[in-house]
Amino acid sequence: MAETKRLTMVEALNLALFEEMERDKNVLVLGEDVGVDGGVFRVTKGLVEKYGEERVVDTPLAEEGIMGAAVGLALYGKRPVCEIQFSGFIFEGYEQLESHARRLRLRTHGALECPMVLRAPCAGGIRALEHHNESAEMIYGHMPGLVVVMPSGPRNARGLLKAAIRSNDPVVFLEPKSVYRSIREDVPLHDDVYPLGKAAVLREGSQFTVVTYGAQVKLVKEVMKKGIEEQGWDPEIIDLQTIMPFDYETVVQSVQKTGRCLIVHEAPRSGGLGAEIVARLIEFSFLYLEAPIERVTGWDTPFPFYAREDTYLPDAQRITSAVHNILSY
């Protein structure tokens, strides 16, 4: 048995940063309050003490400055990992992703690349203030050239962040903060790198496929566990891990086997990743489908203030009802 340590997602991300900074001296961390404060969620805790203020940098309060500096550092040859304190503030620096990070390879016919990572806590469920709950992954997902990643637990958070830092593409790494401290997992201590663009099949099953990612993985697993025990369900559960470019082949193979599919995500429904998954299933698995594909998602509204957030987020009731729909069709 490989040696493991029981960690939360915050601790696992922190471990990944320590490991990657140790492995490659070109890796540096920048952002607001990432130094002595260790980041508002403590993901960068202890880094400045070990690697100093040259490599762990409290920047001016300027999201475009931070993201632009990351683009410049990457162009220069460094491996910047910048933190935007909440994903709702990425928009202040959005320009640098859209106009430069994702285009530099194409603009230079492959001569230059932009190996930066943008980390930001995302999504809702922790009773936070406005602008602290967004699931805007498909805004970046619709910007070819960016890799968009969302881990679901401590182990894949560490493995995916390590892969993101080593990637030569710009990676938007979105961390569902409701999972930051709500799950502990055994994280192997060897160099456990998860490939980007690859989904994980969390449970094999024959009756229907559930495709999800991020914070919803935890919820889906709980609902499925109950369904398996109480109703005899046999679901196949897929955690996409990478939002774009996503592993549609794993989804297509699974649905060709089960014929039924449910997609769960927190982001708004229209134009969400679920819509693209439906389209690809139509493209590649049309004749295998036994029932209309169901989606349980956030609504096509901005995220409400927190007293009403439970009405916005997918929940056990909505997921269970959707499973009944695809099974009874």
Partner: peptide
């Protein structure tokens, strides 16, 4: 927009 990434290059 180049004014921001220039800072990163200078930093490097």
């Amino acid at each position: 927009t180049q004014c921001t990434y220039a800072a990163g290059i200078a930093w490097g």
